[in-house]
Design a protein around this nucleic acid. Structure first.
Lengths: 86, 86, 86, 86
DNA sequence: TGGTTCGAAACACGCC
DNA sequence: GGCGTGTTTCGAACCA
């Protein structure tokens, strides 16, 4: 908390705060850009005759599978750790 | 719709679909990565003694200001359109 | 949860539920009525030679301005809270 | 279109436009008020142990039923009209 | 961990 | 009949 509270003039803290905000804003913009790219992909899929909703469904299923897989890996690792196998 | 429906073997369409899905998934991952980066920024801000909630509010106000500016540009255009100036 | 689950006959809970639903439905109807009134206003505006789209834009800007004002009030409060002034 | 276009000073048209906008805005506020009331009802339902989502489902089913009923009535009326029964 | 609040995605409506 | 906009709904993130 030192920075935010004890700078003589508050100027440095203000700069620090401003920089943090600008970093976050820049990242937000990047995120939006990618979200727009994703929209484009779905638009393209639609233009080629695929159903975007169905594609989203597929993606969510695949995602779930990946997460399950990772979860299983994690559990396995815990067990192996417990058994001194790692 | 030709691609999706009438390929002789369906193989090409399947490949096309798979590629679209993989592109979307890659973009989703990127997006998630950036979202995590944003989280980190807020975490850092918090660690330095700033209130994340206050920062978010500031960002939302700044965003609104930017959007408002664009809105005003847009309405100007609407007016000009209405007045036959475009 | 007592009411919903443990009434001797379930009749009372059913009545309670029915009343809640009817209340919500009545309010939904009112809301729809007002939405229709709004449509009428836009229809009238159009009939008098105004562009409904432009009017909507004006309204949205005015709304944003109002909200922005409230936002600024709100952030002031956040700051004061952060500074222990509330 | 007379009002909007040919008033000597434009003042009357501006007033007319302003009044239309204010009417629409007032109605929007009323609508929002009712929307809030509806939220309250769902909040109350939830507090009493009912599932808001399920209630919404019920309401949408009931609504569909009402609409179907009205449609059937309308068709009936058309037929009766055609048969000279009205 | 459960509730609450927030933002993003799905939906429906009016417009062109 | 498709498109864009506005509303509603859903899920995730944050706090207690």
């Amino acid at each position: 908390m030192a920075d935010a509270e004890f700078e003589g003039s508050g100027q440095v803290a203000a700069d620090e705060l401003r920089l943090l905000i600008e970093r976050a804003e820049r990242l937000e913009e990047e995120k939006k850009g990618i979200a727009d790219d994703i929209k484009d992909v779905f638009g393209e899929a639609k233009a080629r005759g695929y159903d975007p909703k169905a594609i989203k469904k597929i993606m969510s299923i695949r995602k779930k599978k990946r997460e399950e897989y990772q979860e299983e890996e994690a559990i396995l690792e815990v067990y192996m750790q417990a058994l001194g196998m790692l």
